[in-house]
Design a protein around this nucleic acid. Structure first.
Lengths: 125, 125
DNA sequence: GGCTTGTATTGACGTTCATTGATGCAACCT
DNA sequence: AGGTTGCATCAATGAACGTCAATACAAGCC
């Protein structure tokens, strides 16, 4: 269950993580990889899921606590969780009857680093 | 031309920018606002446009330099630039015949700050 | 004025996405 | 074994998205 996420930025080979948005123009492959992750965050339900999980004391949340927070069907929440997992943003584990999700902070850190604009590029504002 | 972007995070009123992803669960409105911005970044063409503009010496790029970098029609590039502008990520100005685009670093900084996960939430990894 | 070049907008089309009800699978309980 | 609960997958549908050709608009040039 934990081995389904996509190959993520700079896991090996080309290293997207350490290059900022402003260091050099992205090539098509880098852009496609990153776009998948941003797209995963580009939905209000998924952003709320992320924040619900990330802000959780202990770092883990049971699906049974996430689903009732939305006025959406259970399959829909399950679908969004799957997309976040495929983007490498969260992971999960089954423990008995319940499934627990947690954030993968490394992915978030890489995104944050990617977005941080070096001072040079800020001069024009 | 410069006054069309959406009302952005924490421009006034509710302040999304200073709350991290992990500080508290997002409410629906905050999530919807942020999702628009992440969605704007969730396309490879738009990410490449962003990096081409951001990595540009001087911080400004003419559309006439962006369009030929893609195997896409000129209206398509124009459409993507419009979406980025509506998300508050870039702005533009017409100077004579040409239109120049530049990055709005504040928006990127806010996103980066939002994604930076506090140490507490990282313990579980 | 009319012509040319650069950019934005419109309208249409095919694809992808979010959502749901129905169903399947896993784990517990009696 | 049978029943129940938690979660994932499937198949279908309507909405949103990316793309383009055609067109419109803006600015410079003749």
């Amino acid at each position: 269950m934990a081995n389904q996420e996509l190959k993520i930025l700079g896991q090996d080979g080309d290293d997207v993580c350490c290059e900022g948005l402003a260091t050099a123009p992205l090539d098509e492959e880098q852009a496609a990889d990153l776009a998948k992750i941003f797209k995963a965050l580009g939905d209000p339900v998924r952003l709320r899921l992320m924040s619900m999980i990330a802000s959780r004391e202990g770092g883990e949340v049971c699906v049974c606590e996430l689903t009732p927070a939305f006025e959406l069907s259970q399959p829909t929440i399950s679908h969004h969780l799957k997309l976040l997992r495929q983007a490498g943003l969260i992971d999960c584990e089954r423990r008995g009857t319940w499934v627990y999700y947690w954030i993968l902070p490394t992915a978030l850190d890489r995104l944050a680093g990617f977005l941080a604009v070096p001072r040079a590029a800020k001069a024009s504002v």
